[in-house]
Design a protein around this nucleic acid. Structure first.
Ligand SMILES: [Mn+2]
Ligand SMILES: [Mn+2]
Ligand SMILES: [Zn+2]
Ligand SMILES: [Zn+2]
Lengths: 143, 143
DNA sequence: TCTTTTATTGAGACGGTTTATCAATTTCAA
DNA sequence: TTGAAATTGATAAACCGTCTCAATAAAAGA
């Protein structure tokens, strides 16, 4: 019996609502995706290279984008390639990224979020989403 | 006599320090750039299409990237194309972006910046740069 | 179960954006 | 004025992700 029963259920629910089908490929990709915190389509492609059935890169992209629509993933653009962030078992969060070793640390900060709302309303905006990324050096990378 | 004397001087200083040359193209592109708040390479290419000498797209890209190195510009990735942000006469700032009409509002908020530092140090990081973008609807776009 | 409809898949073509290449030209210090 | 060195413009190439399409698989209906 597969792990990830809850997330598999969430996916199936989304599929049902949109007359999409539950396929072997989607199951395989979800299983692999849920073991990661952040992953690119290319990385997942290589990780699943020897599985049966063989998974095409286009399918990986399509499926990760599907997970975004289903609320299981979120696309982020830290570097050159899109990172798919596994948000299935956590809420909104932002990131600290080490420019030395590439380490990514997730964080949440309500005070910052509240101040963002203030800035927005002061300018007549209603926030839909936001992106906050802090780039710097982690402790080991500073020697 | 050209405007932008101060910025032209800043560019020349950077060129001098890196054994780069002051060319007619760089002068033209800087003059056009300083009239903008945010602009893409493509937009600038079309804007300068009828100038003499003719400016190649590659030169526009190279020169805008040079401005980034000289501290006059900063590359931002709001949408599909890179936006070059004119930071010559203002310090660091962040952005509110309307998903309805594309309007971009700049803002600064010291309290947010301070909280960012706190988050970083709590995680053993030293911040080098950061990116904060708030996406939402401006007042006219909400009707 | 068998049939039929509809969605999905994988391969590769394609598109948009940015950078690399390179011969010709320009800059600028000597 | 000369000549080494940097710059330029045209365009090829790289890169990443999406689109196309014929073959296949899923699932709803009989
Ligand atoms: Mn994350
Ligand atoms: Mn700006
Ligand atoms: Zn590090
Ligand atoms: Zn608007």
């Amino acid at each position: 019996m597969s792990k990830h029963v809850k997330e598999m259920g969430a996916l199936k629910e989304h599929l049902g609502k949109h007359q999409l089908k539950f396929t072997r490929q989607r199951e395989l990709i979800l299983d692999a995706f849920l073991k990661q915190e952040h992953i690119t389509a290319e990385e997942m492609y290589h990780q699943l290279a020897r599985k049966d059935p063989h998974l095409g890169l286009a399918t990986i992209y399509r499926t990760l984008n599907l997970f975004c629509e289903a609320g299981l993933a979120q696309a982020r653009h830290f570097g050159t390639q899109t990172q798919y962030d596994n948000i299935s078992h956590k809420g909104h969060h932002d990131h600290l990224i080490c420019t030395g070793c590439g380490k990514i640390v997730e964080f949440e900060n309500c005070d910052i979020e509240r101040l963002q709302e203030e800035v927005a309303s002061r300018n007549g905006f209603t926030i839909q989403t936001h992106r906050l990324e802090l780039y710097g050096l982690c402790s080991p990378c500073r020697q």
